[in-house]
Structures are given as C-alpha cells and as structure tokens.
Design a protein around this nucleic acid. Structure first.
Lengths: 142, 142
DNA sequence: TCATAAATTTGTAATGATTACATTTTTATT
DNA sequence: AATAAAAATGTAATCATTACAAATTTATGA
C-alpha cells in the first residue's frame, strides 16, 4: 500500500509533523480506517505488525496529531476518545446502545453563531447526534 | 428560594421522576447554576448543607435525570462530564486552555441531515465549538 | 566516522472519573 | 406496626489517560 503510505506522509508533512515510522503507521491506519477508532483499536491493529509499538506512543502520537490539527477527535459518550482522519466538516452519530459512531452529512456544515457577546475565539465546530442505529433500534421496539 | 424549589419539583414531575430530597436538591442546583458543572462541583456545593449526601448519589441522580431526558449532558474534552438543566436547543463552547464551557446561540438550532442511508434513529443533537475564551486568548497572543 | 545533543519511544506507576455492589436507610403499602 | 419497594450510602474495583524517568533512535557537526 505505497499509495496510502504516501498519503500519510503527505498529511504529516502538511501539518509540520516529523514522519517517524510509528507516526506514519498511526496516520496510515487512520487514513485507511474511517471508523472513529479508539486508542485500543489502533494499538491492537498495529501491534502485530509493529511489535515494538507501545500504547503510550499511540497516545502521544494522537495527541500530537490533534494539536497540529492533522486529525480531529470525537467524544460523545465521554467514555473513550475516538480519532478521525477525516478533517472535512461533517457531523457524527453515536448509538446509545452499541456505541458505534457513524458519519452524517448535514446541510450547513458550520452552524452560524448568532451572537458572541463574550468574544470567544472559535476555531473548531462539531455537530453530533445521539439515538439508535438500525439494528439496536429494532431490539428496542420489541 | 421557594420558587426554584417549585421549579425543580415541577421539572422532576414533568419527566416522571419521584422527588426525593436529594433529587430535588440536585435539580434545584442545576436550575440555579447554568454553569455546566461537573459532578464534583455539584457535590461540593451541596455537601455543606446536605452532609448526608454521597457522591455516588449525585452520580445516580444525574444518570437518572439524563435517562429521563430531564437534563442534558455535555462532554467536549472527554475529561469530566458536564450537566446542563437548560434543555432548550443551544450550542456550547469550551476553551481549550481553561476548560470553561459557555453557551452559544446558533442560527438554525437543529442542523438538517442531508441523507441518512443507514436509517439511524436520531433523537438528540448537540453542537459545540472549541477555541479560546477572551482571557485565555490574550495570553496566547503574548 | 564518531561524539554529542535532541528527539522519540518505552514501560511502569500514578491519577482520577466513573461504576459495581452489598449494605443501610428511607418511603410506601397492606 | 410489618413488610416490601425504593433510594441512598460507602467502599472497592475499573479503566482510560497521563506522568515520568529511563532507554533508544535520529540528527548534527567536528
């Protein structure tokens, strides 16, 4: 997958992040899995092929990516942080039962702030919905 | 503050929650403090006047309130859950530096979902912004 | 090339919010 | 008052995340 490797390398360079092997691996994983994975999912997926990887490094790496705004973070239920390499504007949905996170496209990507009397410096906006995914909804009706 | 006591009692009854003294106290606190408090803030504020209160009860109570949709929860940074008795539609803002949460009014309260191919059952929508509040923004420019 | 400094990574231990759970207390019912 | 049901308590466990010191890797410059 040289193509995804290049995409990951390009993304890192675009955001001023030095491309160590582990950083490339984490970014490549995120850019190949738009499933809003947790740290554990990322670590468990990469560990078999990179046995020298530590979970702390995954934490450090993701924190760096987020600080540099090379990825976004999603936290809806307040349990595990989720990571998303899709930095285009889109909304999220989390099922109250199974916890899965899905993407949702909304009409006006960035809601318009009516007034800002406190002069807050906004630089980032997230929209999310909660409810039940189709499967979990079924079992709820029963 | 008989008025706020009544308001709290009314809110509980409206959402089918039996009004125990502790539940009333927590709801009254939330309806008198729209500051998106954490569990600790709520507990520490109430404990002096209700020394028999336990933190577990505050957790239990807030969880019940949220299940009954008598309040909403806000989690932006994924650290502490915040609780909000304002159940009208509004957006939130959290400062990346000091962590304070503020309310924000946006133009179209509920973003319109363009398409929903997975038939997700949406029942709740949240919008939040991140950035820096005025004070923290100043120190950043320096 | 080799030495040195800087950056990265590691692994363990600590933190801290939240939950589990068994017990106790309070409230409602007959 | 006796019993059952609900609410509240307090401690212990859980689990994601962070702190931190040590080890490793990478870059730099003589």
């Amino acid at each position: 997958m040289i193509k995804t490797k290049n995409a990951a390398r390009t993304r890192l360079s675009k955001f001023g992040i030095k491309p160590s092997l582990h950083r490339l691996a984490v970014m490549e994983y995120l850019m190949g899995n738009y499933t809003h994975p947790t740290v554990d999912m990322i670590f468990n997926s990469l560990f078999p092929s990179i046995p020298t990887l530590s979970k702390t490094t995954v934490y450090n790496t993701l924190k760096l990516f987020e600080e540099k705004r090379a990825i976004t973070t999603v936290t809806i239920d307040g349990k595990n942080m989720r990571y998303d390499a899709d930095i285009t504007k889109h909304a999220h949905f989390q099922c109250r039962k199974c916890g899965a996170i899905h993407d949702l496209r909304i009409k006006d990507e960035i809601p318009v702030v009516v007034d800002n009397p406190e002069n807050l410096l906004l630089d980032d906006c997230h929209v999310y919905f909660r409810g039940y995914c189709e499967e979990c909804g079924k079992s709820y009706v029963l």
